Computed example of a mutant assay.
Amino acid sequence: MNLVAILVLAVGTYAFRLAGPLLRSRLARAQGDEAALPPRLTELLSTAATVLLVALIATTALTDGGRFAGIALPAGVLAGALLAWRKAPFVVVVVAAALVAAGLRALGVP
């Protein structure tokens, strides 16, 4: 069952990645030689991608198994986000976030 799910997800991911260039070329043929998307549509797609990324981050940072994750996990994510914003190296961001979350959990903070 797990192998089937992995294969279905792999095929679906490949199909999504392939759809972009195919749809762009189809749109270019429909509009003549101009392959550019309308500016408003480009802006909406950019905003939609940002909203989806923020929703994914919020869901991952605030929930664990469908329930609120407690304070330690969001605090670790916040520490990592602050370090990433300050342009710290990726390894430092990950280790600091893990240490904050683990430290709070070791102190008994849920």
Rank of each mutant, 00 (worst) to 15 (best):
N2D: 15
L3F: 14
V4N: 04
I6F: 15
L9W: 14
L9P: 00
V11Y: 09
G12V: 09
A15V: 09
F16E: 06
R17F: 14
L18Q: 01
L18D: 07
A19S: 15
L23R: 09
R24E: 13
S25D: 14
R26T: 13
R26E: 15
R29P: 08
R29I: 03
A30Y: 03
Q31G: 07
G32V: 04
D33F: 02
A35F: 05
L37D: 05
P38D: 15
P38T: 12
P38M: 05
L41H: 04
T42F: 12
E43F: 07
L44Y: 03
L45R: 10
S46G: 13
T47N: 07
A48V: 09
A48S: 12
A49Y: 11
T50R: 15
L53G: 06
L53S: 06
V54F: 12
L56D: 01
A61K: 08
A61G: 05
L62D: 10
T63M: 09
D64A: 11
G65W: 05
G70C: 04
A75W: 03
G76H: 04
L78F: 10
A79G: 05
G80L: 02
A81G: 03
A81L: 14
R86A: 05
A88C: 01
A88T: 00
A88W: 05
P89L: 07
F90L: 11
V91C: 00
V92C: 02
V93T: 01
V95C: 00
V95M: 04
A97E: 04
A97C: 02
V100P: 00
V100K: 02
A102N: 01
R105W: 11
A106T: 14
A106G: 06
L107T: 09
G108M: 09
V109N: 04
V109S: 01
